[in-house]
């Protein structure tokens, strides 16, 4: 169980990024966090990853406070962030240093096989396409068998077809590894397709605006009526969270004809 208790984060200049965010995800579930830009969703993820510590409040994994990066919490960034001087194999096995060579090799092979990159094991990252690179990054995070995998808009830099591909892939991996996933995204459709639970965040400072349970059976079908209906309600909630109407109200009235 991953729990956030009253997490707030204020940056140096007194700019509050997160305000009293509390939420929890049970083991093996997928939580999606959606929100507009500046709602602190990346900050939230970094707090769970142990990269930044919250100003107040705490993040807990199975009751123990997260104070730094942990082996059981993996993170996939928006960009693949593969190390260019290591081959794909070297990158995927990066977190396995210290294990015996044979074990390391077997684990990397298995992870590469799962993301469909076994034939690219010995090439350099620069020789991969964007989608392949992000799959390698997924493999690198999963090869150490984390309990929790955090994904920070992992597919947002990809084209629509590759993105759909990777979403399916992620679900397959999730089914195989049974990790808890926390996915930050600004794509409502993606959130509904993947998640069991969606947290809608409002901006400046980021706080939990609404929490929506997605009770659709898996596998889910893209653009099915049921999925679209949930997506519409999440999108409406997001509109309220960002308060688009306030923006609209502040626009100058068109002159009467």
């Amino acid at each position: 169980m991953l729990t956030l208790k009253q997490v707030s984060k204020t940056f140096g200049a007194g700019q509050q990024a997160l305000s009293n965010v509390s939420l929890s995800v049970s083991e093996g579930r997928i939580l999606a966090i959606v929100g507009g830009s500046g709602c602190g969703k990346s900050t939230l993820l970094r707090a769970i990853a142990g990269l930044d510590s919250p100003t107040s409040g705490e993040a807990l994994l199975d009751g123990s406070r997260i104070i730094g990066p942990r082996e059981e919490i993996g993170l996939v960034f928006q960009e693949p962030r593969l190390l260019p001087w290591l081959t794909v194999r070297g990158n995927v096995g990066f977190g396995l240093e210290g294990r015996p060579d044979a074990e390391r090799r077997a684990l990397v092979d298995e992870a590469l096989e799962r993301v469909g990159l076994l034939d690219k094991a010995e090439v350099w990252p620069r020789q991969l396409s964007g989608g392949q690179a992000q799959r390698a990054a997924l493999a690198r995070a999963l090869v150490v068998r984390p309990k929790v995998l955090l994904l920070d808009e992992p597919f947002s830099a990809l084209d629509a077809i590759t993105r759909a591909d990777l979403q399916d892939h992620l679900l397959e991996l999730w089914a195989a590894f049974r990790a808890t996933l926390v996915l930050v995204t600004h794509d409502v459709e993606e959130a509904v397709l993947l998640a069991d639970e969606i947290v809608v965040m409002s901006s400046r400072p980021g706080r939990v605006f609404e929490q929506v349970a997605v009770d659709l059976p898996r596998p889910r079908e893209r653009r099915s009526a049921a999925l679209e209906a949930v997506a519409r309600s999440v999108a409406a909630s997001l509109d309220r969270a960002i308060d688009r109407n306030a923006v609209r109200r502040s626009l100058p009235k068109p002159a009467a004809a």
Binding site: P80, E122, V123, W124, Q127, L128, S129, A133, A157, D159
Partner: peptide, 18 residues
């Protein structure tokens, strides 16, 4: 990084990067 494959990306097979 773009989704367009580098021209060299297809050619080298395993162990062929060198």
């Amino acid at each position: 990084m773009t989704a367009i494959e580098h021209p060299d990306a297809r050619a080298p097979a395993v162990g062929d990067a060198l």
